[in-house]
């Protein structure tokens, strides 16, 4: 059953197009994949010349709410997860995206846009794991 009251197809498409524009700019100007987990993970191992643009991208990303607030009211977020769940989730996302060499942006957006079979497998896998996890938490464990 579709949640029609929360489904926002137009802002989703428009926001998605902005993400696609960002990935396009980044590959055409910087020659790089706009994959957030790789950008962050690379901070730990980057060569000196590779540090500045990584930090610049992340500053832009973290600063986006400030820029957004100049034009429109920021959406109110709902973070239901407990602090311990957030710690577990963060650890899994950190380790998993590094071993899997990408996340929703690197594999899910850039990889699929490049028609990469590797990214298709990664995306289907983390989507499947995400669907299963939420199903388990909400409908089997009933948390």
């Amino acid at each position: 059953m579709i949640a029609w009251n929360t489904f926002t197809p137009w802002s989703a498409l428009a926001g998605g197009a902005l993400i696609g524009l960002s990935a396009t700019l980044f590959v055409l100007l910087n020659g790089r994949i706009a994959g957030i987990s790789g950008l962050i993970g690379g901070l730990l191992t980057a060569a000196r010349g590779d540090l500045a643009w990584r930090i610049a991208f992340l500053i832009g990303l973290i600063g986006a709410p400030l820029a957004y607030a100049l034009f429109a009211a920021l959406p109110v977020l709902r973070i239901d997860a407990s602090y311990s769940a957030l710690c577990l989730a963060g650890l899994l996302v950190g380790i998993g995206t590094r071993y899997g060499a990408g996340c929703t942006s690197g594999h899910g957006v850039c990889g699929l846009a490049r028609l990469s079979p590797r990214s298709l497998v990664a995306t289907l896998t983390f989507m499947g794991a995400g669907f299963s996890t939420v199903f388990f938490i909400r409908h089997i464990a009933g948390l």
Binding site: V93, T97, G100, A101, T104, H107, A129, V134
Partner: peptide
């Protein structure tokens, strides 16, 4: 890695 990421995401 993608399985671990997907679990953490969920």
């Amino acid at each position: 890695g993608s399985v671990l990421f997907g679990i953490g995401w969920g």
